[in-house]
């Protein structure tokens, strides 16, 4: 999902017979469940797609700090404030791990940052939605992190070693994120009338965008097929979306909240929940930059980057002075 709308460069998936020996060996290693490491030979398209995917994933973590960071100073108890802060801090950490994984492919974090700030690289559409009430902290943890986990758990087995290792660490740390969100939702859903109203309103606003996180149906997409052959995408978008709905619908029922989709019901025949597709026109609008918060999010990142320049330069200059003083002393 963090790889929403990644355009891969291949013209369809080559068969092993069509490949040159080097590429064939590469593909066979992936097919056998082997890992590709930074210095190994890899097709250009594989490297390029990975840089975009990992970079986009990293950007999503960093931009993803903003909607939740929006409530840290308004958290209603000291404990809630600490939990939320620790969670948003984890997101910064996850961005950091992922940028480092991308750096093994020959780009720097600053390269990727500049691409984010200029709008050349994207981040997950979900973070362009506003967080309007405290219940949104619950909904984001429960739904957005819930959807993210669906995608991230299988990525621990992705073919690129540094990416897979980053995902292992991220998944380990993320395990508390969804729970803290659900915990907030429970408290709200079982609270006062006003709290219940906030909880339902949050679910209403985040349900569709959460479904969009998996990206549009990829049944027809050659790009997806190539990414799956390379094992940098492990499941189809539709498969993950269904899994998410199957998991989430009973939880909403437990909370006594109503999913804003009348068709969302357990289908006895298939054993899965039926559900309506989210508004894909809205999704493409958000992706184009017309989401409710695209402007604010990019402005905030640009401001942090510009305001921080003198700090980064200052500390670097001091380190250089220290180094030369040390050399002079020796």
């Amino acid at each position: 999902m963090y790889a929403q709308m990644i355009k891969s460069t291949g013209q369809g998936v080559k068969s092993l017979d069509e490949m040159e020996p080097q590429e064939r060996a590469f593909q066979e290693r992936i097919d056998a469940g082997g890992k590709i490491e930074p210095k190994d030979w890899m097709p250009d398209g594989y490297r390029k797609n990975l840089i975009r995917q990992i970079g986009q994933h990293a950007h999503s973590e960093i931009v993803g700090q903003l909607p939740e960071g929006n409530w840290i100073t308004r958290a209603p108890t000291l404990e809630r404030k600490a939990i939320l802060l620790a969670k948003v801090q984890d997101e910064a950490g996850h961005g950091l791990y992922l940028y480092c994984a991308a750096e093994t492919l020959g780009v720097t974090r600053d390269d990727l940052t500049r691409d984010l700030l200029s709008g050349k690289m994207k981040y997950s559409s979900i973070f362009n939605y506003p967080t309007l009430t405290w219940a949104d902290m619950g909904a984001v943890g429960w739904l957005v992190d819930g959807a993210a986990i669906m995608n991230q758990v299988p990525l621990q087995r992705t073919s690129y070693g540094p990416y897979a290792r980053a995902m292992v660490r991220i998944c380990k740390e993320e395990s508390f994120h969804q729970r803290q969100g659900f915990d907030i939702m429970m408290k709200m859903a079982k609270g006062t009338d006003a709290q219940r109203k906030m909880a339902q309103d949050a679910l209403n606003r985040f349900w569709g965008p959460a479904l969009m996180m998996f990206g549009p149906s990829d049944a027809e997409s050659v790009h997806s097929a190539q990414s799956m052959a390379w094992k940098i995408k492990m499941n189809s978008n539709d498969e993950l979306r269904q899994k998410f709905v199957d998991q989430t619908a009973p939880q909403a029922e437990y909370l006594g909240l109503t999913i804003p989709d009348e068709t969302c019901k357990l289908n006895e025949e298939t054993g899965h929940y039926d559900f309506a597709q989210p508004d894909w026109d809205e999704f493409f609008d958000v992706l184009k930059g017309n989401g409710p918060c695209n402007t604010e999010r990019l402005e905030a990142r640009n401001k942090a980057w510009d305001d921080g320049r003198w700090v980064r330069e200052g500390l670097l200059a001091h380190a250089a002075k220290k180094r030369s003083a040390k050399m002079a002393a020796e």
Binding site: E37, P38, K39, D44, R47, K48, I51, R52, G55, Y97, L98, C100, A101, E103, T104, L105, G106, V107, T108, R109, D110, D111, L112, R114, D115, S118, K120, M121, G161, P162, R165, A166, R169, R309, R312, E313, L315, L316
Partner: peptide, 27 residues
């Protein structure tokens, strides 16, 4: 996650990766 063994690659979305790296902290 990272590894020191990277090979340079310039073909990301942004064509204009400036060569100056003097503001980047080392890895």
């Amino acid at each position: 996650m990272s590894s020191p063994e990277s090979s340079p690659y310039k073909a990301t979305e942004a064509a204009e990766h400036t060569e100056t790296r003097k503001t980047e902290w080392p890895l």
